[in-house]
Design a protein around this nucleic acid. Structure first.
Lengths: 102, 102
DNA sequence: GTAACATATGAACATGCGTTCATATAACTG
DNA sequence: CAGTTATATGAACGCATGTTCATATGTTAC
């Protein structure tokens, strides 16, 4: 997305559509618990039970957030036996890199 | 803020404090109408009445959002006569630049 | 002075959504 | 098979906050 295209005083419909999708993504990562999950999953993969041990969040809440993050393409999962391991995707890493510069 | 500091499995309190402030900022810019205002004010300064003419937002709503953006240091204002002109700050431009790379 | 214009502000409303609770599904163990 | 562990899911709740409405403040003009 190129913000330079919004420079005119009255952005057109196409530009506002981009704002909508950007808004959706920003809303997703603006939630503290989701940011925590992303940061923890940035370097190493973890299963839900590991996250559950180290964070003050219920198993259910973690699953819900991971589902949202996965739907947005920020994390991916891999099932091995009983456990499901999550890690940040390439796209998720890109987002985290940008946020780290704030 | 350096996201690399969250790589361990259990981020400490100081790191979570940073997440809190990042979360606050992201929540602010994740609102469509505020994004629209930022994009329009990125290149040129505009008074509220100009924004009001070109956007589908009430004068009151625009004022409220500009107040929030100003408090966060993303825009600054300058009173000239009856009118108050707003424009994006250096910090606001930095944020918009980062967002433009998403 | 009054009238018109420009902006700000506080309260109330409405709704999205993060969270919790209960429960379901699935996999391993013995 | 039953029992335990790991994860997912759907419904309901509660609250933050974006929005609206009414009104206040301030500036210019006549």
């Amino acid at each position: 997305m190129n913000m330079r295209s919004y420079n005119c005083c009255s952005p057109n419909k196409d530009e506002f559509r981009k704002i909508t999708s950007l808004s959706t993504l920003l809303k997703l990562v603006s939630v503290e618990n989701r940011l925590k999950l992303l940061c923890i999953l940035k370097s190493d993969e973890h299963c839900v039970c590991e996250l559950y041990e180290h964070l003050d969040m219920s198993q259910s809440l973690i699953s819900h957030h991971l589902r949202d993050l996965k739907e947005a393409g920020l994390v991916k999962d891999e099932k091995r036996g009983q456990k499901v391991y999550y890690k940040v995707t390439k796209f998720g890493n890109k987002i985290l890199s940008l946020l780290s510069e704030i």
